[in-house]
Design a protein around this nucleic acid. Structure first.
Length: 474
RNA sequence: GGCGCGGUACCCAAGUGGCAAGGGAGAGGUCUGCAAAACCUCGAUUCGCCGGUUCGAAUCCGGCCCGCGCCUCCA
């Protein structure tokens, strides 16, 4: 059984898709006015884990991720740069997709752009006007939240309090607003001098932020779909407003399960430009040479509904944890196993498999799932040591780890295990020195190789070497 | 002020009524020329604090303290 914590109910619920065997998922994507940071990627990695697990569990998945390529900031910055929206956003979109690849995030089925779905949005806005739940004011169109009784259900916000209160108890004079209520939100914004706008049947202008998700999710997934994900900051107002628009227009339930991931903080503090602690993927992977697998391991290993604290020490710990898995795989692939095994590997795998599935099925409890894997590794290593794992069993274990990694996707890409002739010669020279019991020379060469990222292991079956994981440098 | 998340060993982190998972780091040991890898052993009489319920609580209830997030078109 799969259970997810649904923000709508505030508790865990059994997950059953609308159409048996098929899951439709909408994941809030990037606003492409800037290079995405690792906090953004935490959300995408979480969503990737979710989708991978659903497929691992036998579901067919359809995933849509939007690209918000028109909003206030995008317009503002494009204007400053003297570029069109399309020109301005192109490099950020590219950076976003490059990041997905780096972190081995499986591509969504569709990446619709807001600017390419204006007609879909206009249709909904027009419908909302016709139904009387939206109104025009000075060229803009607003959604009237008083016409949507369940407004506030997702976020648990009291609409009455919202109407008169901003933060810290400060009262707002609602009369001063153009909108009829302080918290009515814009569906369509009147054109402003020098800003891009679209000529449409509801008049010239550009879309409000929330409407794109209502329009594009319906276009690809239908008016009702299974899962909608995003960061916790989107619960209010973004997702609350999406529900209002979609349900008021389609008169059908919008999303069945809302899954929100918490934020990533850095050194215990919120990422912010003023603190200078905002990291992009390139800052870590290119500049500091952090292994992308290690970064993914780090991002994945804290439960998605908890705040994740990014520190370089935590990254080192993730690297150590990952190494435990990669060393196990290395052992399975490079050791000479006896022909006959003990028959103990099968039950071990079955047990780990069940625990792994149960763990992730429990609202993506990665800790439990990883424990299943580590338990298997410890027990299997123990059997390997006792020569109780046969060649077939080693293959079965390797295959199980691969299956698990279809979900986690943390094992490094298979590196070409080729090194330069110079390194190869050095390894041989070190072997000769060792055979001659010239320990000083052998150790010196080993140290040199280690600095070049080559780890040597002397086993009773002979020398073997592996490429050390990349270690970040600051 | 409202809504929400969290406080479990040196670090990370599961567990949500019945003897406190797992990973890392650390200590000791086996193996090894030495390492590396691996395995074994050790490690919280205790789960932010104080009360309460219970045969029994990290887990339920009440109160308090601390950290953090959102309530600004920030995932």
């Amino acid at each position: 059984m799969i259970r997810f914590h649904n923000t709508l109910s505030g508790r865990e619920e059994e997950f059953l898709p609308l159409v048996p065997g098929e899951v439709r998922v909408y994941t809030c994507g990037p606003t492409v006015y800037n290079v995405p940071h690792i906090g953004n990627f935490r959300a995408y990695v979480f969503e990737d884990l979710l989708l991978r697990f659903l497929r691992f569990s036998g579901y067919k998945t359809i995933q849509v991720m939007n690209l918000t390529d028109v909003d206030d900031k995008t317009i503002r910055d494009a204007r400053t740069a003297g570029l069109s929206l399309r020109e301005y956003t192109a490099p950020f979109i590219e950076s976003f997709f490059a990041g997905l690849k780096t972190l081995r995030i499986h591509p969504a089925d569709h990446y619709p752009r807001a600017t390419e779905h204006i007609p879909d949005m206009v249709r909904i806005i027009k419908g909302l006007l016709d139904k009387g739940v939206a109104y025009r004011k000075e060229g803009s169109i607003y959604f009237d939240i008083s016409k949507f009784p369940s407004y506030g259900r997702l976020s648990g916000i009291d609409v009455e309090a919202l109407r008169t209160t901003s933060r810290i108890g400060a009262r707002l004079e609602t009369d001063e607003y153009e909108k009829e209520s302080a918290r009515d939100f814009a569906l369509w914004k009147a054109p402003k001098e020098g800003e891009p706008f679209w000529e449409t049947e509801i008049g010239p202008g550009r879309p409000g932020w929330h409407i794109e998700c209502s329009a594009m999710s319906a276009a690809f997934l239908g008016p009702t779909f299974d899962i909608h994900c995003g960061g916790v900051d989107n619960i209010f107002p973004h997702h609350e407003n999406e529900i209002a628009q979609s349900e008021a227009y389609f008169e059908k339930p919008f999303v069945r399960y809302w899954l929100h991931c918490h934020h990533l903080i850095v050194d215990g503090e919120k990422m912010s430009k003023s603190k200078g602690n905002v990291y992009s993927l390139d800052d870590l992977v290119e500049t500091r040479r952090v292994d992308p697998s290690v970064l993914r391991m780090f991002l994945i290993s804290t439960h998605y509904r908890k705040v994740l604290n990014f520190t370089f020490e935590a990254l080192d710990q993730a690297a150590a944890a990952l190494k435990r898995i990669t060393d196990f795989v290395y052992e399975l692939e490079h050791r000479a196993f006896p022909d006959a095994g003990s028959g103990l590997a099968g039950p071990l795998i079955a047990e780990a498999d069940a625990e792994f599935r149960d763990g992730l099925g429990d609202d993506l409890n990665v800790s439990s799932a990883l424990t299943a894997l580590y338990d298997l590794i410890r027990k299997a290593n123990s059997l390997i040591r006792e020569e109780k794992i046969g060649a077939d069993e080693a293959r079965a274990l390797r295959s199980f780890v691969s299956q698990v990694d279809d979900v986690l996707a943390v094992l490094p890409e298979r590196r070409e295990e080729e090194v330069s002739a110079a390194v190869r010669e050095k390894i041989e020279a070190r072997e000769l020195a060792r055979k001659a019991k010239n320990w000083a020379e052998a150790d010196r060469l080993r140290r040199e190789l280690l600095e070049a990222g080559i780890v040597l292991e002397d086993t009773k079956d002979g020398i073997r070497w592996k490429i050390a994981p990349r270690k970040e440098s600051s």
